[in-house]
């Protein structure tokens, strides 16, 4: 992992649709080298996948997101890992993290309605062994996600010419 790899990663993170040639020009190396570096980063699992950042709230007025916090009794030898692995298998669990603070695990869950999310928690999460407590927070509005702003911001106007 050198500086060129790092720059390549930030370029891809920002816009993974940038052409191989443009990436090569910006990084000052050949197309082939970029292709090779990209392949290695993929192989090493550093690049997990290429995706678009979509503001689903704008497309799909019906979907609901919730943050669910869980208090979990850890297992001897495994801590939180096995229960986390189990929870992460649900397709509607978008994010899952172990964190410090009042709760242990934090999930981001997507559903069609508040009822659907309530049902998911009641039927699948809460009854799991070792889950001591759940707290569900419905997301009302997303302002910024993964460094991308979702709200219109009025940027200052620049003069068309200045010296």
């Amino acid at each position: 992992m050198d500086d060129i790899d790092r720059s390549l990663l930030s370029l891809l993170e920002e816009d993974c649709s940038t052409s191989l040639h443009d990436l090569a020009v910006m990084l000052g190396c050949s197309d082939e080298e970029v292709e090779k570096r990209k392949a290695n980063l993929e192989k090493d699992g550093i690049i997990r996948r290429y995706s678009a950042v979509i503001n689903w709230e704008q497309v799909d007025k019906g979907s609901v997101y919730a943050i669910i916090e869980l208090k979990v009794a850890p297992e001897r030898d495994h801590g939180f890992d096995r229960i986390a692995a189990r929870i992460s298998r649900f397709a509607n669990v978008r994010d899952l993290r172990l964190r410090t603070g009042t709760h242990d695990l934090q999930l981001l869950v997507k559903g069609k309605s508040m009822q659907e999310i309530a049902r998911f928690v009641a039927e699948h999460i809460a009854p799991m062994e070792r889950i001591r407590e759940t707290a569900t927070h419905i997301i009302m509005k997303t302002y910024k996600e993964n460094g991308v702003l979702y709200v219109e911001r009025e940027d200052g106007q620049r003069l068309p010419f200045s010296f």
Partner: peptide
């Protein structure tokens, strides 16, 4: 000598200005 360029740029829509001497960052 550049005044009229300001005026030209002001009249037109969809101009990409590479005429600015300042960062595009806030």
């Amino acid at each position: 000598g550049i005044r009229r360029f300001f005026d030209l740029a002001g009249q037109m829509e969809d101009v990409i200005s590479l005429g600015v001497g300042e960062p595009d960052y806030s």
